[in-house]
Amino acid sequence: MSLPIVDFFYDIVSPYSYVAAKRIHELDGLATVRWRPCLLGGVFKATGNTGPAFTVPAKMPYMFKDLSRLAAYYGFPLTVPKSFPANTVTVQRVLCAADEAQVPALSMKLYDIYWGQGLDVSDPVTLTGLVGEALMAKASSDEVKARLRENTEAVVGAGGFGAPTFLLDGELYFGEDRLFLLIDRLKKA
């Protein structure tokens, strides 16, 4: 019997998507996770949303404190990048250009560099050094640009308004803090 498919929509710039990616192993044995890089800025534009830390000034310091608590709780490093928020269009295109089987490991590598070490993965020289020239060249193709648009439109079309967003059988779960509900549903299925 095959496992249900959970679509995981994320952007490397999203710190809560980093937390979700670090926790995604909690779905092992319950679902097949399909990593779907999207452009968070495109999702925000399409839905009229903004990042949580930009709507109310007091949220930014709280968000970083909250993220530090989550990282300590789950036991992984967190270093807020000086380049936050970075323009991740090219980063997300690189992820869309990679072979599907490589996307999870490559995403984790980029998350660990950006959120774990605080380095700017959106810098073209840094990104090229991390992924290689061939993948960078492929990322600028019309096919890859279309794939990123399709993923972004898919999350918006499903009712998504930010990242991370999980989709199971058309039902949306928003935020890493809702993984427990998704897990509960999968266990009961």
Rank of each mutant, 00 (worst) to 15 (best):
L27F: 08
Y114M: 03
G157W: 09
L172S: 05
A72M: 05
D99Q: 12
L119Y: 06
Y16S: 11
A158D: 12
A86V: 03
V13C: 04
T126C: 08
A139S: 13
P85S: 08
T32I: 13
A158K: 11
V156F: 01
T128H: 06
A105T: 10
P4R: 03
C96V: 12
V43T: 10
L186E: 11
R69A: 12
E150T: 14
K188P: 01
A21C: 14
Q92L: 07
A97F: 01
F174M: 10
T55R: 09
V155M: 03
E150K: 13
E153G: 02
F161M: 13
G157H: 11
D123I: 07
K109A: 13
Y10A: 10
S68Y: 03
V155A: 04
F9Q: 02
V91A: 00
E176D: 15
L40V: 09
G29S: 09
V43L: 03
C96F: 05
R178A: 00
G129V: 09
G129K: 08
K65W: 13
E150C: 11
V121G: 04
E176R: 06
V125T: 15
P37N: 11
Y62M: 14
A72K: 10
G118C: 07
L106V: 07
A31D: 04
V156E: 00
A31S: 08
G162F: 03
D177T: 13
L168H: 06
P15E: 09
R36Y: 01
E133S: 14
Y173E: 07
S141W: 07
Y62K: 12
G170E: 04
F84R: 08
A101Q: 14
P81G: 07
P15T: 11
K59W: 09
K22A: 14
H25K: 11
T32H: 14
G157E: 10
L179V: 08
I113E: 10
G160E: 08
L119E: 14
G51N: 08
T32L: 11
V94M: 02
R185L: 09
G116E: 02
